[in-house]
């Protein structure tokens, strides 16, 4: 991500429920942010808004000190971000084709494409699965395909929605390792999770989403990492 990205006054309403009412949220290049919150608190909705997949009722985006209306910001968000679903969808084709999808969609020439896909497959430790149908993979393998498929398009930032929910231990560990590798590569990442313990060790910042607001959680002291006894301070208005 070049320069920081700031979301202001994001409001999302379903029926007569104001699900999100975020004063401001800033993403800095190379930073990894955790957003925790109970089930139904709006994490998925917030991440989809940040990826441009979902339209909020209100909100502006500021990039490189230029404030954009939502209409203007949406295509930028869409082209800069990749959003990963909690249960990633595998296209009904080989692992190779799944990973190649974004390059084909953006019309990368075939000569370059194949080389980049093989490189990405090695990165995700998927070489041995290449010809397999991605729909037949295990949960952990699917998550690896999803992360590799996202990384290959070189997004400005990655939005990971509960990336380890409903996974066994081994797969979870592999997923943490890949996320940390992405961090080391300088990728800007936002992770949502309702079980925060594992992630709070690897992220730079932690916010707790409650009643539509983001509250900054202090990650300095280890024993406060659990949601139930987290130190919650309101997120400062306008930074």
């Amino acid at each position: 991500m070049q320069g920081s990205l700031r979301f202001d006054n994001i409001e999302k309403v379903y029926g007569d429920r104001v699900l999100l009412s975020i004063d401001t949220f800033r993403m800095n290049p190379g930073e990894c942010t955790l957003i925790s919150g109970d089930n139904g608190s709006g994490k998925t909705t917030l991440l989809k808004i940040m990826s441009g997949l979902l339209k909020p009722e209100q909100g502006t985006v500021t990039k490189n000190e230029i404030t954009l209306s939502w209409i203007k910001a949406r295509p930028i968000l869409q082209s800069e971000s990749v959003y990963l679903h909690q249960a990633p969808y595998m296209f009904d084709t080989s692992v190779f084709n799944n990973v190649a999808y974004g390059l084909r969609a953006t019309k990368v020439p075939k000569s370059q494409m194949e080389e980049r896909v093989w490189q990405a497959l090695r990165w995700g430790n998927l070489d041995h699965l290449t010809p397999r149908n991605a729909k037949l993979l295990s949960g952990g393998e699917r998550q690896r395909v999803a992360l590799t498929r996202a990384r290959i398009v070189n997004p400005g930032f990655l939005l990971l929605d509960e990336p380890t929910a409903s996974m066994d231990r081994g797969s979870r560990q592999q997923t943490y390792e890949l996320i940390q590798r992405l961090q080391r590569e300088g990728m800007s990442i936002v992770i949502s999770a309702h079980d925060v313990e594992a992630f709070s060790n690897i992220v730079d910042r932690h916010f707790f989403l409650e009643a539509g607001h983001l509250h900054k959680v202090d990650i300095g002291t280890k024993q406060h990492k659990h949601k139930s006894n987290a130190v919650v301070t309101p997120f400062p208005k306008n930074r």
């Binding site: 997949l53 990749v82 679903h85 990633p88 999808y101 498929r149 398009v153």
Partner: peptide, 8 residues
């Protein structure tokens, strides 16, 4: 959504 977010 997957197709869109991957740039389709």
């Amino acid at each position: 959504e997957t197709a869109k977010t991957l740039g389709a």
